[in-house]
Design a binder for these strands. Structure first.
Lengths: 196, 196
DNA sequence: GTCTATACCACGATAGAC
DNA sequence: GTCTATCGTGGTATAGAC
């Protein structure tokens, strides 16, 4: 069973139940406003069981985070493989992000929003995580082939993906009036124009 | 005295001391990892004094947030007044954001990053706050005068400002190798190109 | 206005029966 | 593996002297 499309980790049903409940509560109220008792009540799994599967509360967040980030990174690998040009790769990446934000807003919120440093002190910042590094690598490759014009690679990366990510933030904050994935064509037109 | 350039609120020295200490701790460790005892120790102000000036811990965060957001909104008003074209206004807004991120990273981090909903349940999301609404209004006006090409106003807004905001996120996460304000010209070139 | 001392409670985590 | 009961800590907030 999978909690998140793309993830490969095999988890027992019990773990899945705990993690999906935690994801729901963490995104609704925040990590620190969610007690282990809340998870216990909401998932109807005893405290003892929770501590059987996870070392502690932080361990739950850690497992959740790894699961989601791994899933995203795997999909980015697929996108890389299935597309030939930088244009198509980057467009597919944005399409994926928008669709994911739409179909799994909580997963997206946990990845993009949660201040992981505050409860996962050993994690690097999300912008340096595998999926985001992958995206930056796509842009860099595109500059080498000439598809993207010469400039600082970081500037190119934030210019190409920044608009879409910002749009997803607005979506997660509930201030968009249309479903976020409907914006794909328009946002992509702007993004690609910015770097070519 | 002022905690943040642009803010007009008159605060006593004691309040300022408490707020600036709180800002430091909140951004370093996060709101929930900072106890009132920590603020007391760090600012060398007694618990009693803190509760004399602020209703509770949330009140500290609320005062800080209002102070910073008001300051930003005031500067955005100035920018509107001092510039005539949409091009100049939006460029000045981005310049301001980058410089602010550089000179007051903690203030910027508290505004952009903190999951306010988790500890300020009555605040609207930051993207709907006054300064950000102002920026969106600039873009909308620019589309009416024809400076910016016709499209969904939200898409135009995120395309114009999304790259810079993303860049600031990278800066705050410490993954930029140059000071963020040095990127102004390059990021602006991309941003403006995206919407014209 | 400023301080110290303390009440009170919620939470994370464990022990140990089944 | 699953559960309930409970412990200890540490946090917010208040009381009340100066």
């Amino acid at each position: 069973m999978e909690l998140f499309p793309g993830a490969e980790n095999s988890l027992s049903d019990r773990e899945m139940l705990i993690l999906s409940t935690a994801l729901e509560l963490f995104t609704q109220r925040g990590y620190f406003n969610t007690s282990v008792h809340d998870i216990h009540r909401s998932a109807r799994v005893s405290i003892g069981s929770i501590y059987h599967y996870f070392k502690n509360k932080e361990g739950i967040a850690q497992a959740l985070y790894s699961h989601l980030v791994d899933g995203m990174a795997n999909v980015m690998d697929d996108i890389d493989r299935e597309n030939k040009t930088t244009h198509d790769r980057c467009r597919a990446a944005i399409e994926y992000l928008l669709k994911l934000a739409q179909s799994s807003p909580q997963a997206m919120q946990f990845i993009l929003y949660a201040r992981h440093r505050e409860f996962l002190p050993d994690e690097k910042p999300i912008c340096s995580s595998r999926p985001f590094e992958k995206m930056k690598a796509m842009v860099k490759a595109g500059m080498e082939t000439g598809e993207i014009r010469q400039m600082d690679p970081t500037v190119a990366s934030v210019s190409l993906f920044g608009g879409a990510i910002r749009l997803i933030h607005l979506w997660l904050d509930g201030v968009l009036n249309r479903p976020v994935s409907e914006y794909l064509d328009e946002i992509w037109a702007c993004a690609w124009r910015a770097v070519t």
